[in-house]
Amino acid sequence: MGARAAAIPMQPGSAPVRAHEPTLQQIWAWLAGVTDPEIPVLSVVDLGIVRDLQWQEAPSGRELILTWTPTYSGCPAVEVINADMKAALVAHGVGNVRLKLQLSPAWTTDWITPAGRQKLRVYGIAPPACGACVAREIVAGMARRMPAVECPRCGSRHTHCLSPAGSTRCKALYACDDCLEPFDYFKPH
């Protein structure tokens, strides 16, 4: 259970909880078990894809509204992630789920939780350490003065970018000048 999930308060004014209806905290915990198919150490909660959960009255009975936001517009994992979230909830008896797309505010790597960043590092992907402030500097044409990216294997800051386009849309390919290993860098966005 991530720190973020625990910090989500019950929404004031939401419909009262019914008997046998899972609490929103419980649902956050279940969603924390749904992982990104391309970065299987990160859950949809770690990534900040799930923005909000609400129970709501609907003609079909009580309905869970799951508000989500895409990471990158063209991320091919999105449909798999959405299907996986629904399947996980169905497996826990929450069958009446509606996914609600939220585009604004646009997703940023700043929303990746501290726990998620640590999981990335352990997995061998350098996390987007300084957040989206760095992304803005990159696009302002100062890419060559970016703060050094730390090698997730040996911790060295003597690293360099091999290719801004990496194995997936969200990653760049880097190499370490000390341990000589190549590694993925999750680009600040």
């Binding site: 895409p70 990158y72 517009s73 063209g74 991320c75 386009a165 849309r169």
Partner: peptide, 11 residues
Amino acid sequence: NTGLDLLGHAR
């Protein structure tokens, strides 16, 4: 990757 972004926008 650029094409993928643009496809996402198009959708």
